[in-house]
Amino acid sequence: MCLGVPGKIMSIDENAIGMTMGKVNFAGIVKEVCLAYVPEARVGDYVVVHVGFAISKVDEQQAADVFSFLQDMGDLGELNIPQPE
């Protein structure tokens, strides 16, 4: 139930009672999603969507963190251990 899926915002609009909704594309499947909890999100941004609600915006800069972490570990030589043939 807590699996959020990242998708890209295609459009943003308001429903009849003023709630921010949007169309979000998940690798080709487009769904109507409530964007009320990510007021800072714009068309083109990626959001993590959970039961029809965007619960957070994906930070594109931080998204590379995992890889720069690996890079840094490599540079520090932590991973330069001999590998069995």
Binding site: M1, C2, G4, I17, M19, C34, H50, F53, I55
Partner: peptide, 16 residues
């Protein structure tokens, strides 16, 4: 039901 992740959607449903 659910944890802190479903609470905001469910809160919004009641509010709406």
């Amino acid at each position: 039901v659910g944890f802190e992740t479903t609470a905001p959607p469910n809160a919004m449903a009641v509010f709406q």
